[in-house]
Amino acid sequence: MTSKVPPDVFVERDTYRKRRWMDALRLLPFCGLGLWALPIIWSNGSADETPLVATSQAIAYVFVVWLFLIISGFALGRVLSLKTGGREV
């Protein structure tokens, strides 16, 4: 059996950039998961020494994260489909 072909280490600048954008796209859900999991460390009334988070603040937080994810997903999708010349990524 012959040895495995090493993958290209050096690729063109555009290709490299495209791969990094794809990395960002793949990381996005984990980013969202982390941000939306954050409320579990907020005080929820079981221990009463810390002040409770107001619902209005919670709404703002959750929806801002939502908006961030939507806009990031949209932007990354646009960048990638432009880079691939409108083809599917």
Binding site: I40, W42, N44, G45, L52, A54, T55, S56, Q57
Partner: peptide, 13 residues
């Protein structure tokens, strides 16, 4: 909202 019964964060983690 903040003044209502559900005005604070009381979600079980």
């Amino acid at each position: 909202i903040d003044a209502s019964d559900i005005g604070t964060w009381q979600v079980d983690s």
